[in-house]
Design a protein around this nucleic acid. Structure first.
Lengths: 148, 148
DNA sequence: AATATTACTTGCAAAATGCAAATAAAAGGA
DNA sequence: TCCTTTTATTTGCATTTTGCAAGTAATATT
């Protein structure tokens, strides 16, 4: 058995490549980072700029500009919160949602391909393992959150 | 059970944060990217510049400059290959090796912390799952390699 | 009402990126 | 062998990305 860090490093690198491939596929040309932003806006419920920046561990001033770019690209919208006018709520435009969905389907295809080389019970074990790992990392204090 | 992509996305994000934390800890101030470069040079046997760039999926011209920076920082050395003088072999300096080792130990501590919240048999299952996953992704054609 | 905090934006200078082109060495073909 | 092609690496250059410091505007606290 290789050491633990090696296992994780290799796995996350491969997953990173997979993610990167999905960005450039199918004509739309977005960066890996933009793909992650689309993903998070799609996932979270009425997220603010600050929330997504925190989730991704990106500096807020940098993120502010990344959003400006994506608004110009017509992938993302922002509208002021009705209750607190300092806050801007992010959402995907129709085009942004389309791109996010395309990427999602592409990722699903890749995963299906990977897991097609595994028995159903192995697949089950692997997915449950990752789920357990995520749960454990979530409870495990300061180790797996953005710095500061 | 959440969907597969979500599981992976969350896991790799957490692992990314963990990695990032290790860069800034303990006084040395290197970027996440530099940490990955140290890791790969340490891991591979007499790697060339091209090899590491390929492993990390980084553009060769960008990588050439990243290495120049790390040589100036006295973390990395390069020396021409004796057999093929186009090639430069990378290695860590004493200081680079020290930093790589510190990061490695820090990562090990984090992993120990995470897995301390798990039963020994769960830990075993999780690690074997990741190993299986890596093996499967390795054989599974074009899906998990750098673009082009 | 004055002060502090929070959410977000902009100025600016530094760093990182990648394409095109250059160099230099090795490999392959006639 | 000479000529062409390929490979490994570097540099020029223009663009993009980054993050700190400082700003605005709105809410929260005192």
């Amino acid at each position: 058995m290789e050491n633990v860090r090696d296992l994780f490093q290799i796995m996350t690198r491969r997953f990173g490549f997979l993610n990167k491939n999905c960005c450039t596929l199918g004509g739309f040309n977005i960066t890996l980072n933009q793909s992650h932003i689309l993903y998070e806006i799609d996932r979270q419920h009425q997220p603010s700029i600050q929330q997504i920046a925190d989730t991704l561990g990106t500096d807020i001033t940098t993120f502010s500009r990344q959003i400006q770019t994506m608004i110009k690209m017509n992938l993302v919208k922002k509208k002021p919160d009705t209750a607190d006018r300092r806050i801007f709520i992010l959402s995907l435009t129709t085009e942004g949602k389309f791109v996010a969905t395309m990427i999602d389907e592409q990722m699903k295809m890749y995963f299906d391909e990977i897991f097609s080389h595994m028995s159903e019970s192995d697949k089950e074990t692997v997915l449950q393992s990752i789920q357990l790992l995520n749960k454990t990392m979530a409870t495990s204090g300061s180790c797996c959150v953005p710095p500061q």
